[in-house]
Design a protein around this nucleic acid. Sequence first.
DNA 1: CGGACTATCTAACATAGTTAGGAGTATCGA
DNA 2: TCGATACTCCTAACTATGTTAGATAGTCCG
Lengths: 202, 202
Amino acid sequence: MRDRRAERRESTRAEILDAAWEQVREHGLAALSLRDVARSVGMQPPSLYSYFDSKNAIYDAMYAQGARECVEAQQALKPLPDDQLEALKALLHFFVEFCAADFARYQLLFQRTIPGFEPSPESFKISEDNLAEIGEMLARSGVTDPGSLDLLTALGTGLADQQISNDPGGDRWIRLIDEAVEMFYEHITKKAKKPSKGRRTR
Amino acid sequence: MRDRRAERRESTRAEILDAAWEQVREHGLAALSLRDVARSVGMQPPSLYSYFDSKNAIYDAMYAQGARECVEAQQALKPLPDDQLEALKALLHFFVEFCAADFARYQLLFQRTIPGFEPSPESFKISEDNLAEIGEMLARSGVTDPGSLDLLTALGTGLADQQISNDPGGDRWIRLIDEAVEMFYEHITKKAKKPSKGRRTR
DNA sequence: CGGACTATCTAACATAGTTAGGAGTATCGA
DNA sequence: TCGATACTCCTAACTATGTTAGATAGTCCG
Protein backbone atom coordinates (compact mmCIF):
# COMPACT_ATOMS: atom_id res chain seq x y z
CA MET A 1 0.00 0.00 0.00
CA ARG A 2 1.58 3.12 -1.19
CA ASP A 3 -1.22 5.18 0.36
CA ARG A 4 0.07 4.32 3.77
CA ARG A 5 3.20 6.27 3.02
CA ALA A 6 1.45 9.27 1.60
CA GLU A 7 -0.92 9.26 4.52
CA ARG A 8 1.87 9.16 7.05
CA ARG A 9 3.66 11.89 5.18
CA GLU A 10 0.59 14.07 5.23
CA SER A 11 0.08 13.56 8.90
CA THR A 12 3.67 14.51 9.65
CA ARG A 13 3.23 17.65 7.58
CA ALA A 14 0.18 18.49 9.64
CA GLU A 15 2.11 17.84 12.82
CA ILE A 16 4.82 20.22 11.71
CA LEU A 17 2.29 22.90 10.85
CA ASP A 18 0.58 22.49 14.20
CA ALA A 19 3.89 22.95 15.95
CA ALA A 20 4.58 26.00 13.82
CA TRP A 21 1.24 27.55 14.71
CA GLU A 22 1.88 26.96 18.36
CA GLN A 23 5.29 28.60 18.09
CA VAL A 24 3.90 31.53 16.22
CA ARG A 25 1.01 32.10 18.58
CA GLU A 26 3.40 31.97 21.50
CA HIS A 27 6.32 34.05 20.25
CA GLY A 28 5.02 36.04 17.33
CA LEU A 29 4.62 35.35 13.65
CA ALA A 30 8.07 36.46 12.60
CA ALA A 31 9.73 34.55 15.42
CA LEU A 32 9.11 31.15 13.91
CA SER A 33 12.21 29.01 14.42
CA LEU A 34 12.66 25.89 12.34
CA ARG A 35 14.89 24.41 14.97
CA ASP A 36 12.29 24.76 17.67
CA VAL A 37 9.63 23.37 15.39
CA ALA A 38 11.86 20.41 14.60
CA ARG A 39 12.57 19.83 18.24
CA SER A 40 8.91 19.95 19.15
CA VAL A 41 8.05 17.26 16.60
CA GLY A 42 11.08 15.19 17.61
CA MET A 43 13.26 15.74 14.58
CA GLN A 44 16.53 17.30 13.64
CA PRO A 45 16.14 20.62 11.83
CA PRO A 46 17.26 19.47 8.38
CA SER A 47 14.68 16.70 8.42
CA LEU A 48 11.95 19.26 8.00
CA TYR A 49 13.21 19.77 4.49
CA SER A 50 11.73 16.46 3.43
CA TYR A 51 8.36 18.01 4.12
CA PHE A 52 8.82 21.66 3.20
CA ASP A 53 11.25 23.26 0.81
CA SER A 54 12.03 26.17 3.06
CA LYS A 55 10.84 28.24 5.95
CA ASN A 56 8.80 30.34 3.56
CA ALA A 57 7.16 27.17 2.28
CA ILE A 58 5.98 26.57 5.82
CA TYR A 59 4.64 30.08 6.02
CA ASP A 60 2.92 29.45 2.72
CA ALA A 61 1.28 26.28 3.96
CA MET A 62 0.18 28.14 7.06
CA TYR A 63 -1.21 30.90 4.91
CA ALA A 64 -3.21 28.43 2.86
CA GLN A 65 -4.45 26.81 6.04
CA GLY A 66 -5.52 30.13 7.50
CA ALA A 67 -7.24 31.11 4.29
CA ARG A 68 -9.14 27.83 4.26
CA GLU A 69 -10.21 28.42 7.84
CA CYS A 70 -11.52 31.76 6.72
CA VAL A 71 -13.52 30.14 3.94
CA GLU A 72 -15.00 27.62 6.35
CA ALA A 73 -15.94 30.22 8.93
CA GLN A 74 -17.58 32.17 6.17
CA GLN A 75 -19.53 29.22 4.80
CA ALA A 76 -21.03 28.84 8.24
CA LEU A 77 -22.73 32.19 7.67
CA LYS A 78 -24.97 30.83 4.95
CA PRO A 79 -27.70 31.40 4.40
CA LEU A 80 -27.32 35.10 5.00
CA PRO A 81 -30.35 36.93 6.40
CA ASP A 82 -32.62 38.31 3.70
CA ASP A 83 -32.63 41.66 5.35
CA GLN A 84 -29.72 43.52 3.81
CA LEU A 85 -28.79 45.42 6.94
CA GLU A 86 -28.70 42.25 8.99
CA ALA A 87 -26.70 40.51 6.31
CA LEU A 88 -24.08 43.23 6.40
CA LYS A 89 -23.91 43.05 10.15
CA ALA A 90 -23.39 39.31 10.00
CA LEU A 91 -20.61 39.69 7.46
CA LEU A 92 -18.74 42.27 9.46
CA HIS A 93 -19.15 40.33 12.66
CA PHE A 94 -17.74 37.29 10.96
CA PHE A 95 -14.75 39.17 9.66
CA VAL A 96 -13.83 41.04 12.80
CA GLU A 97 -14.25 38.02 15.00
CA PHE A 98 -12.27 35.82 12.65
CA CYS A 99 -9.41 38.30 12.78
CA ALA A 100 -9.62 38.82 16.51
CA ALA A 101 -9.55 35.10 17.20
CA ASP A 102 -5.88 34.68 16.28
CA PHE A 103 -3.41 37.50 16.03
CA ALA A 104 -0.68 35.50 14.35
CA ARG A 105 -3.09 34.24 11.72
CA TYR A 106 -4.37 37.76 11.21
CA GLN A 107 -0.86 39.01 10.65
CA LEU A 108 -0.03 36.22 8.27
CA LEU A 109 -3.16 36.68 6.18
CA PHE A 110 -3.64 40.41 6.21
CA GLN A 111 -0.37 42.15 6.95
CA ARG A 112 2.92 42.11 5.08
CA THR A 113 4.93 41.30 8.13
CA ILE A 114 7.58 38.87 6.93
CA PRO A 115 10.11 40.29 4.51
CA GLY A 116 10.69 37.97 1.61
CA PHE A 117 7.49 36.04 2.08
CA GLU A 118 4.64 36.22 -0.34
CA PRO A 119 1.92 33.61 -0.52
CA SER A 120 2.24 31.37 -3.54
CA PRO A 121 -0.31 31.87 -6.33
CA GLU A 122 -2.18 28.72 -5.26
CA SER A 123 -2.42 29.83 -1.67
CA PHE A 124 -3.29 33.35 -2.63
CA LYS A 125 -6.03 32.08 -4.87
CA ILE A 126 -7.88 30.73 -1.84
CA SER A 127 -8.00 34.22 -0.37
CA GLU A 128 -8.86 35.72 -3.70
CA ASP A 129 -11.77 33.42 -4.37
CA ASN A 130 -12.99 34.05 -0.89
CA LEU A 131 -12.80 37.76 -1.38
CA ALA A 132 -14.73 37.44 -4.61
CA GLU A 133 -17.47 35.55 -2.85
CA ILE A 134 -17.66 38.15 -0.14
CA GLY A 135 -17.98 40.67 -2.92
CA GLU A 136 -20.97 38.79 -4.28
CA MET A 137 -22.53 38.58 -0.85
CA LEU A 138 -22.14 42.30 -0.49
CA ALA A 139 -23.60 42.91 -3.91
CA ARG A 140 -26.61 40.85 -2.91
CA SER A 141 -26.84 43.02 0.19
CA GLY A 142 -27.04 46.16 -1.85
CA VAL A 143 -23.41 47.26 -1.82
CA THR A 144 -22.60 47.59 -5.48
CA ASP A 145 -20.48 50.57 -6.39
CA PRO A 146 -16.72 50.27 -5.86
CA GLY A 147 -16.46 53.28 -3.61
CA SER A 148 -18.97 51.93 -1.12
CA LEU A 149 -17.29 48.58 -1.23
CA ASP A 150 -13.93 50.16 -0.45
CA LEU A 151 -15.49 52.16 2.32
CA LEU A 152 -16.98 49.09 3.92
CA THR A 153 -13.71 47.23 3.55
CA ALA A 154 -11.91 50.02 5.33
CA LEU A 155 -14.50 49.99 8.07
CA GLY A 156 -14.15 46.25 8.51
CA THR A 157 -10.38 46.14 8.55
CA GLY A 158 -10.27 49.16 10.80
CA LEU A 159 -12.57 47.58 13.35
CA ALA A 160 -10.67 44.30 13.16
CA ASP A 161 -7.32 45.99 13.49
CA GLN A 162 -8.30 48.11 16.46
CA GLN A 163 -9.99 45.18 18.11
CA ILE A 164 -7.07 42.82 17.92
CA SER A 165 -4.36 45.41 18.47
CA ASN A 166 -5.87 47.30 21.35
CA ASP A 167 -8.36 45.02 23.03
CA PRO A 168 -7.47 41.38 22.38
CA GLY A 169 -9.76 39.12 24.30
CA GLY A 170 -12.26 41.91 24.81
CA ASP A 171 -15.05 43.19 22.62
CA ARG A 172 -14.54 46.93 22.61
CA TRP A 173 -14.70 47.31 18.85
CA ILE A 174 -16.86 44.29 18.26
CA ARG A 175 -19.59 46.13 20.14
CA LEU A 176 -19.37 48.92 17.59
CA ILE A 177 -19.97 46.75 14.58
CA ASP A 178 -23.73 47.08 14.49
CA GLU A 179 -23.58 50.80 14.90
CA ALA A 180 -20.93 51.06 12.20
CA VAL A 181 -22.96 49.01 9.77
CA GLU A 182 -26.08 51.02 10.45
CA MET A 183 -24.17 54.18 9.78
CA PHE A 184 -22.79 52.74 6.58
CA TYR A 185 -26.12 51.37 5.42
CA GLU A 186 -27.92 54.63 5.96
CA HIS A 187 -25.15 56.34 4.06
CA ILE A 188 -25.37 54.18 0.97
CA THR A 189 -29.14 54.12 0.81
CA LYS A 190 -29.17 57.88 1.00
CA LYS A 191 -26.51 58.06 -1.67
CA ALA A 192 -28.55 55.79 -3.92
CA LYS A 193 -31.56 58.09 -3.69
CA LYS A 194 -29.87 61.23 -4.90
CA PRO A 195 -27.00 60.22 -7.13
CA SER A 196 -25.59 63.75 -7.34
CA LYS A 197 -22.49 62.92 -9.27
CA GLY A 198 -20.76 66.27 -9.43
CA ARG A 199 -20.01 66.90 -5.81
CA ARG A 200 -21.20 70.33 -4.90
CA THR A 201 -20.49 70.31 -1.22
CA ARG A 202 -17.95 72.98 -0.38
CA MET B 1 35.17 71.34 24.37
CA ARG B 2 33.23 68.38 25.40
CA ASP B 3 30.37 69.52 23.21
CA ARG B 4 32.40 68.69 20.15
CA ARG B 5 32.35 65.05 21.14
CA ALA B 6 28.71 64.94 21.97
CA GLU B 7 27.90 66.69 18.75
CA ARG B 8 29.89 64.28 16.68
CA ARG B 9 28.37 61.39 18.53
CA GLU B 10 24.92 62.66 17.89
CA SER B 11 25.59 63.12 14.22
CA THR B 12 26.90 59.58 13.91
CA ARG B 13 23.82 58.28 15.64
CA ALA B 14 21.72 60.16 13.13
CA GLU B 15 23.77 58.71 10.32
CA ILE B 16 23.18 55.21 11.60
CA LEU B 17 19.47 55.83 11.90
CA ASP B 18 19.32 57.21 8.39
CA ALA B 19 21.03 54.11 7.09
CA ALA B 20 18.64 51.95 9.08
CA TRP B 21 15.62 53.73 7.60
CA GLU B 22 16.97 53.27 4.13
CA GLN B 23 17.49 49.55 4.78
CA VAL B 24 14.06 49.17 6.20
CA ARG B 25 12.33 51.02 3.41
CA GLU B 26 14.18 48.90 0.89
CA HIS B 27 13.93 45.44 2.40
CA GLY B 28 11.15 45.59 4.94
CA LEU B 29 10.98 46.61 8.57
CA ALA B 30 11.85 43.22 10.03
CA ALA B 31 14.73 42.73 7.61
CA LEU B 32 16.95 45.31 9.26
CA SER B 33 20.49 43.97 9.34
CA LEU B 34 23.01 45.52 11.69
CA ARG B 35 25.82 44.30 9.54
CA ASP B 36 24.48 46.04 6.47
CA VAL B 37 23.81 49.20 8.43
CA ALA B 38 27.36 49.12 9.75
CA ARG B 39 28.76 48.61 6.30
CA SER B 40 26.73 51.45 4.86
CA VAL B 41 28.11 53.90 7.45
CA GLY B 42 31.63 52.53 7.05
CA MET B 43 31.97 50.67 10.31
CA GLN B 44 32.38 47.17 11.57
CA PRO B 45 29.19 45.73 13.04
CA PRO B 46 30.27 45.72 16.69
CA SER B 47 31.11 49.41 16.51
CA LEU B 48 27.42 50.21 16.35
CA TYR B 49 27.23 49.14 19.95
CA SER B 50 28.97 52.33 21.03
CA TYR B 51 25.90 54.14 19.76
CA PHE B 52 23.05 51.75 20.47
CA ASP B 53 22.76 49.03 23.07
CA SER B 54 21.14 46.56 20.72
CA LYS B 55 19.17 46.13 17.55
CA ASN B 56 16.00 46.78 19.46
CA ALA B 57 17.49 50.03 20.74
CA ILE B 58 17.82 51.07 17.11
CA TYR B 59 14.22 50.16 16.49
CA ASP B 60 13.32 52.16 19.53
CA ALA B 61 15.17 55.23 18.32
CA MET B 62 13.49 54.83 14.96
CA TYR B 63 10.14 54.57 16.67
CA ALA B 64 10.76 57.77 18.59
CA GLN B 65 11.85 59.47 15.40
CA GLY B 66 8.73 58.34 13.56
CA ALA B 67 6.52 59.43 16.41
CA ARG B 68 8.15 62.85 16.41
CA GLU B 69 7.59 63.12 12.68
CA CYS B 70 3.96 62.38 13.35
CA VAL B 71 3.77 65.15 15.92
CA GLU B 72 5.36 67.60 13.52
CA ALA B 73 3.09 66.71 10.64
CA GLN B 74 0.19 67.16 12.97
CA GLN B 75 1.33 70.53 14.26
CA ALA B 76 1.30 71.72 10.68
CA LEU B 77 -2.46 71.26 10.74
CA LYS B 78 -2.98 74.07 13.21
CA PRO B 79 -5.04 76.01 13.33
CA LEU B 80 -7.77 73.56 12.49
CA PRO B 81 -10.73 74.87 10.52
CA ASP B 82 -13.52 76.18 12.72
CA ASP B 83 -16.03 74.13 10.84
CA GLN B 84 -16.17 70.82 12.63
CA LEU B 85 -16.75 68.75 9.53
CA GLU B 86 -13.79 70.31 7.77
CA ALA B 87 -11.66 69.86 10.85
CA LEU B 88 -12.43 66.17 10.94
CA LYS B 89 -11.62 65.83 7.27
CA ALA B 90 -8.30 67.55 7.80
CA LEU B 91 -7.46 65.26 10.68
CA LEU B 92 -8.23 62.10 8.79
CA HIS B 93 -6.39 63.30 5.72
CA PHE B 94 -3.38 64.00 7.84
CA PHE B 95 -3.45 60.57 9.42
CA VAL B 96 -4.02 58.52 6.31
CA GLU B 97 -1.46 60.42 4.31
CA PHE B 98 1.08 60.22 7.09
CA CYS B 99 0.65 56.46 7.18
CA ALA B 100 0.66 56.04 3.43
CA ALA B 101 3.83 58.07 3.04
CA ASP B 102 6.07 55.36 4.50
CA PHE B 103 5.11 51.73 4.91
CA ALA B 104 8.03 50.79 7.11
CA ARG B 105 7.33 53.68 9.45
CA TYR B 106 3.67 52.75 9.49
CA GLN B 107 4.52 49.21 10.46
CA LEU B 108 6.93 50.31 13.15
CA LEU B 109 4.52 52.77 14.72
CA PHE B 110 1.20 51.04 14.34
CA GLN B 111 1.68 47.31 13.94
CA ARG B 112 3.29 44.77 16.26
CA THR B 113 5.53 43.36 13.62
CA ILE B 114 8.81 42.67 15.36
CA PRO B 115 8.70 39.97 18.02
CA GLY B 116 10.53 41.04 21.13
CA PHE B 117 10.38 44.73 20.34
CA GLU B 118 8.31 47.14 22.30
CA PRO B 119 8.90 50.86 22.30
CA SER B 120 10.47 52.12 25.50
CA PRO B 121 8.24 54.11 27.81
CA GLU B 122 9.93 57.36 26.75
CA SER B 123 9.40 56.65 23.08
CA PHE B 124 5.90 55.44 23.63
CA LYS B 125 5.10 58.59 25.55
CA ILE B 126 5.61 60.62 22.40
CA SER B 127 2.90 58.64 20.67
CA GLU B 128 0.70 58.74 23.70
CA ASP B 129 0.88 62.50 24.13
CA ASN B 130 0.19 62.87 20.46
CA LEU B 131 -2.82 60.64 20.69
CA ALA B 132 -4.08 62.64 23.63
CA GLU B 133 -3.80 65.83 21.63
CA ILE B 134 -5.64 64.29 18.72
CA GLY B 135 -8.29 63.33 21.24
CA GLU B 136 -8.59 66.95 22.26
CA MET B 137 -8.79 68.08 18.67
CA LEU B 138 -11.58 65.61 18.09
CA ALA B 139 -13.39 66.73 21.20
CA ARG B 140 -13.23 70.30 19.94
CA SER B 141 -14.67 69.00 16.68
CA GLY B 142 -17.66 67.55 18.42
CA VAL B 143 -16.55 63.95 18.84
CA THR B 144 -16.90 63.38 22.54
CA ASP B 145 -18.31 60.02 23.52
CA PRO B 146 -15.89 57.07 23.58
CA GLY B 147 -17.90 54.98 21.15
CA SER B 148 -17.83 57.61 18.43
CA LEU B 149 -14.15 58.14 19.05
CA ASP B 150 -13.47 54.44 18.64
CA LEU B 151 -15.58 54.37 15.52
CA LEU B 152 -13.67 57.21 13.96
CA THR B 153 -10.37 55.61 14.96
CA ALA B 154 -11.40 52.40 13.25
CA LEU B 155 -12.41 54.35 10.18
CA GLY B 156 -9.09 56.16 10.09
CA THR B 157 -6.90 53.12 10.61
CA GLY B 158 -8.98 51.14 8.16
CA LEU B 159 -8.59 53.73 5.44
CA ALA B 160 -4.89 54.04 6.15
CA ASP B 161 -4.36 50.32 6.20
CA GLN B 162 -6.20 49.67 2.96
CA GLN B 163 -4.51 52.61 1.30
CA ILE B 164 -0.98 51.57 2.12
CA SER B 165 -1.54 47.85 1.76
CA ASN B 166 -3.50 47.78 -1.45
CA ASP B 167 -2.75 50.99 -3.29
CA PRO B 168 0.62 52.37 -2.24
CA GLY B 169 1.50 55.39 -4.29
CA GLY B 170 -2.10 55.83 -5.38
CA ASP B 171 -5.03 57.53 -3.72
CA ARG B 172 -7.82 55.00 -3.91
CA TRP B 173 -8.77 55.19 -0.26
CA ILE B 174 -7.57 58.73 0.23
CA ARG B 175 -10.29 59.77 -2.16
CA LEU B 176 -12.84 58.21 0.17
CA ILE B 177 -11.83 60.16 3.22
CA ASP B 178 -14.19 63.08 2.72
CA GLU B 179 -17.11 60.79 2.06
CA ALA B 180 -16.25 58.68 5.09
CA VAL B 181 -16.03 61.70 7.33
CA GLU B 182 -19.32 63.07 6.04
CA MET B 183 -20.93 59.76 6.74
CA PHE B 184 -19.47 59.70 10.21
CA TYR B 185 -20.36 63.29 10.97
CA GLU B 186 -23.94 62.87 9.92
CA HIS B 187 -24.11 59.79 12.07
CA ILE B 188 -22.91 61.42 15.26
CA THR B 189 -24.96 64.56 14.83
CA LYS B 190 -28.04 62.45 14.36
CA LYS B 191 -27.11 60.37 17.38
CA ALA B 192 -26.70 63.51 19.45
CA LYS B 193 -30.21 64.69 18.59
CA LYS B 194 -32.05 61.63 19.77
CA PRO B 195 -29.98 60.02 22.49
CA SER B 196 -32.14 56.93 22.63
CA LYS B 197 -30.06 54.92 25.02
CA GLY B 198 -31.93 51.67 25.05
CA ARG B 199 -31.53 50.56 21.47
CA ARG B 200 -34.92 49.72 20.10
CA THR B 201 -33.97 49.09 16.50
CA ARG B 202 -34.72 45.52 15.55
C1' DC C 1 16.86 -11.74 -1.39
C1' DG C 2 18.35 -7.42 -4.03
C1' DG C 3 17.46 -2.82 -5.49
C1' DA C 4 15.05 1.47 -5.30
C1' DC C 5 13.07 4.86 -2.50
C1' DT C 6 12.61 7.57 1.53
C1' DA C 7 13.08 9.34 5.90
C1' DT C 8 16.27 10.74 8.98
C1' DC C 9 20.69 11.73 10.68
C1' DT C 10 25.38 14.20 11.26
C1' DA C 11 28.54 17.64 9.59
C1' DA C 12 29.12 21.77 7.75
C1' DC C 13 28.32 26.62 5.75
C1' DA C 14 26.78 31.41 5.64
C1' DT C 15 24.77 34.83 8.02
C1' DA C 16 22.65 36.97 12.04
C1' DG C 17 23.12 39.60 16.74
C1' DT C 18 26.17 40.11 20.32
C1' DT C 19 30.33 40.06 23.71
C1' DA C 20 35.27 40.41 25.05
C1' DG C 21 39.38 42.53 24.83
C1' DG C 22 42.82 45.35 22.80
C1' DA C 23 44.85 49.35 19.95
C1' DG C 24 44.71 53.97 18.94
C1' DT C 25 43.12 58.75 19.71
C1' DA C 26 41.10 62.70 21.56
C1' DT C 27 40.16 65.18 26.06
C1' DC C 28 41.05 66.94 30.51
C1' DG C 29 43.28 67.84 35.11
C1' DA C 30 47.54 68.87 37.23
C1' DT D 1 53.19 69.70 28.76
C1' DC D 2 52.43 65.10 30.59
C1' DG D 3 50.01 61.31 32.21
C1' DA D 4 45.50 59.51 33.22
C1' DT D 5 41.02 58.86 31.45
C1' DA D 6 37.48 58.14 28.38
C1' DC D 7 35.94 57.02 24.01
C1' DT D 8 35.90 54.98 19.36
C1' DC D 9 36.80 51.46 16.57
C1' DC D 10 38.81 47.20 15.55
C1' DT D 11 39.48 41.91 15.37
C1' DA D 12 38.23 37.52 17.14
C1' DA D 13 34.97 34.76 18.75
C1' DC D 14 30.37 32.87 20.57
C1' DT D 15 25.71 31.46 19.80
C1' DA D 16 21.77 30.89 16.97
C1' DT D 17 19.69 30.97 12.56
C1' DG D 18 18.23 28.81 7.74
C1' DT D 19 20.04 25.73 4.62
C1' DT D 20 22.88 22.11 1.85
C1' DA D 21 25.59 17.79 1.22
C1' DG D 22 26.33 13.31 2.05
C1' DA D 23 25.90 9.13 4.67
C1' DT D 24 23.00 5.67 7.03
C1' DA D 25 19.28 3.02 8.07
C1' DG D 26 14.73 1.31 7.21
C1' DT D 27 10.81 0.12 4.10
C1' DC D 28 8.53 -1.39 0.08
C1' DC D 29 8.25 -4.04 -4.30
C1' DG D 30 9.79 -7.31 -7.80
